[in-house]
Amino acid sequence: MLKIRDLEKTFNPGTVNAKTALSGFDLTLNDGDFVTVIGGNGAGKSTMLNAIAGVWKPDYGTIEIDGVDVTNMPEHKRAKFLGRVFQDPMKGTSPDMEIAENLSIAARRGDKRKLVWGCSRKEKEGYRDLLAQLGLGLEDRLSTKVGLLSGGQRQAVTLLMATLKKPKILLLDEHTAALDPKTAAKVLEITNKLVTENNLTTLMITHNMHDAIEYGNRLIMMHEGHVVVDVSGEEKKKLTIDQLLSLFETASGSRFTSDKVMLSK
């Protein structure tokens, strides 16, 4: 499904600000894997997700999705394989366009766009049902500009957009981090529902250790640009936060440092 080999990326190479964000990063995802990703500050979590999405090209290494080498494929072409939700709730939706228009754009991800009606009435009815499933009362606000929604609502709409056309891989970049705890829980619940119902292969970065353990069938921990802990199945189900921290310390030879993770512990 997803095969990443020996990925490396250094930002600002050759300057005092040079930062190696990924080095020797290997990861293979199987069909239907729901992987939670945790790691300290600057461990390379977001960099890894952006590499898969094609925001920029890696310095070395290859990325293969569904048997296709996408390492040099531009971001917009790669989008046909991927559903993405960003940390910033403003980033995933077009604020000046209606909810229905945003969804209609997402429904055509990977298709050639033509000079035909972009959002038909019949299509809107389908969106109404999908929005109703979110339980946020958005089904009656199809013509509302997305910019008028709250952060949580926008994130829920983005989730729907990311999964409307079933992606090969769903990439979630701390997508609840900017939300208040109650909304974050709601969005996470919607996430879990969409992922399990559609059996989506998912990579979810989170700073919340409870969530990392509770959700998904596999957990990876990153440190200095590569995977240091990788647990799945029964072993993951029985995991506790303290075990996780000691696993990390043994594997990386250092203490786990992330203010955000520690605060949420």
Binding site: H76, K91, M97
Partner: peptide, 16 residues
Amino acid sequence: KSTGDNPDMSRAQGIN
């Protein structure tokens, strides 16, 4: 419209 409104979202949705 979405290109001008939100280029990040547009690229993520496969828009050139």
